[in-house]
Amino acid sequence: MKTARLPLLLCALLATATGFAEEAKDTDSPDTLIATVNGTPYQLDVFRLFYMERLQGNQGQQNNPAFQQQVFDEFMGLIVASQEGDRRKMQGDRNVVAALELERMKVMSNAALSAMAEEMEPTEDELKSAYEKVKEQSARTEYKARHILVKDEDEAKKIIKQLDKGGNFADLAKKHSQGPTGKDGGDLGWFDAKQMVAPFAEAVAAMKPGSYTKEPVQTQFGWHVIELQETRKAEPPSFEDAKPQLTALVKRQKIASKVNEMREGAMVELNEEVVKMKEDPTSAK
């Protein structure tokens, strides 16, 4: 097999999957092969799917010839190993049969859900209703604070005493803080309490603007003295800005509802030798 120009070739063949070459349209046919290995033909579409799966964890690599070569080599390894499985007649193995059926079900399920999503275009009223719920759920307080991080509790207590005597928090942070914000006077800017480790977040949430902690706060990073400067209510994104996310959210909800409806309406005959049904304790005897 000649592979010297393979990365350049792959660049064109994968174009319809990654969208970076117009001239590759001629290869966009379900009958187009990428290779014939030991007499067995393999469709380009199969490789494209394999390539896109590998690309998910390697964003930005689609134009990298070395990455393309690596994925192609993996694909060839998959081919010859699967052919060995055929040679050993493993397609009849009980576990292989079950695994193949499970994969078929997953693929068909994903294809069906994608088709359903295309058909379920949310109305403006549904999007606005979802937006109101998101606004309510996303209501939160943001904090603007400084902190001084030191290694031991006694040092932190000494700093608090200096603050009690009128010491300047920013100056003390520049002098004593071992954290990366020390040079900036301990300034943390605006943050959501969820961004901080639990002891720090709990301390900030209990404080009033303009105050500092009267006792050092311990975290895995050391001992903190915290000054809370301001608080504010976080502003949610506008309806227009949030529309793409709202559309996806409403579609997921509609699909889940439809799948639940289909499940409830399905005619199911259980093998009672395998699935033991528990009696409903509330049912009348």
Rank of each mutant, 00 (worst) to 15 (best):
T3H: 05
C11H: 14
A15G: 14
T16L: 02
G19M: 07
E23L: 00
A24R: 03
D26R: 01
Y42R: 05
V46L: 14
V46E: 14
F47M: 05
R48V: 08
F50L: 06
E53S: 08
N58S: 12
G60D: 03
Q61H: 13
N63R: 11
P65H: 07
Q68V: 06
G77C: 03
L78I: 00
E84A: 02
Q91S: 12
V96N: 10
V97S: 01
L102H: 12
R104I: 10
M105A: 15
V107E: 11
L113S: 06
A115F: 11
A117Y: 04
P122C: 07
T123F: 03
V134C: 00
R140I: 06
E142P: 14
I148E: 05
L149W: 11
L149N: 04
V150Y: 05
K157G: 02
I160K: 09
Q162L: 12
L163Y: 10
K165I: 07
N168C: 03
A173R: 06
H176M: 05
H176K: 09
S177N: 03
Q178V: 12
G179A: 07
D184F: 15
D184V: 04
G185Y: 04
D187R: 03
G189K: 03
Q195E: 15
Q195C: 01
V197D: 14
Y212T: 13
Y212C: 07
Q220V: 11
F221E: 08
V225S: 02
I226K: 00
T231E: 00
R232F: 02
K233C: 01
A234Q: 11
P236F: 08
P236A: 12
D241Q: 13
D241K: 13
A242G: 03
Q245N: 13
Q245H: 10
K251N: 06
R252F: 01
I255Y: 06
R263K: 11
E269P: 01
N271M: 09
V275E: 09
E279Q: 07
